[in-house]
C-alpha cells in the first residue's frame, strides 16, 4: 500500500483549486464537471479537493473547515528553498499569517499560514541532508 491522495473537503472546489494555483504555485490536474472534485499536479501523491457535499454522498460525517475557528488537527507542508518568497506570495494571495519564516534549531526554515478555508499550510525548507 502507498499514500495515493490527500483529499481536503472544501466549500468550493474550483475556487480552492484557483487559490492553490495563485498562493502556492501549484497547477491544476483537472476538475470534474460536477465541480465537486479536483486534483493538483503534485507528483505521485496527489493533493485533491472534494466538495463538502461529496463527504455526505460518501457517507462521511465531517466538521467543515472554517477560517473563523481553530484549525483541524492536521496540516499540509510545502517544501521550498525560498521560504520567505513563498510565504510572502501566500499572504499576498489571501492566506492568513500564522507564523513568519523562522529558523528551527535543526537549521530548517519554517513558516505557517492558513488557506482560504482555514486549513493549516506549512511552508518550509528541506531538512538538510534529505532530498
Amino acid at each position: 500500500m502507498k499514500l495515493g491522495y490527500t483529499i481536503i473537503y472544501v466549500a468550493d472546489v474550483p475556487k480552492t483549486v484557483a487559490f492553490y494555483e495563485a498562493a502556492f504555485g501549484l497547477k491544476q490536474r483537472f476538475i470534474h464537471e460536477s465541480n465537486l472534485y479536483g486534483e493538483m499536479e503534485t507528483g505521485e501523491t496527489i493533493l485533491a479537493f472534494a466538495g463538502t457535499e461529496a463527504a455526505e454522498m460518501n457517507g462521511l460525517a465531517i466538521l467543515p473547515n472554517s477560517p473563523d475557528g481553530p484549525a483541524a488537527a492536521w496540516e499540509i507542508c510545502f517544501v521550498t528553498d525560498d521560504v520567505a518568497a513563498a510565504y510572502e506570495r501566500a499572504l499576498s494571495e489571501g492566506c492568513q499569517p500564522v507564523g513568519a519564516p523562522s529558523e528551527k534549531p535543526w537549521g530548517q526554515i519554517v513558516s505557517y499560514v492558513r488557506d482560504l478555508d482555514g486549513c493549516i499550510v506549512e511552508i518550509a525548507s528541506p531538512i538538510q541532508g534529505s532530498a
Binding site: G69, P70, Q96, P97, V98, G99, A100, S102, Y112, R114
Partner: peptide, 18 residues
C-alpha cells in the same frame, strides 16, 4: 506569541487569535 514570535501583524493576529 503570534505577534512577538510569529511576526503576524496585529489585525491578522486578532483574527487568528479568535
Amino acid at each position: 506569541k503570534l505577534i512577538t514570535s510569529g511576526n503576524v501583524p496585529i489585525i491578522a493576529a486578532a483574527f487568528e487569535g479568535g
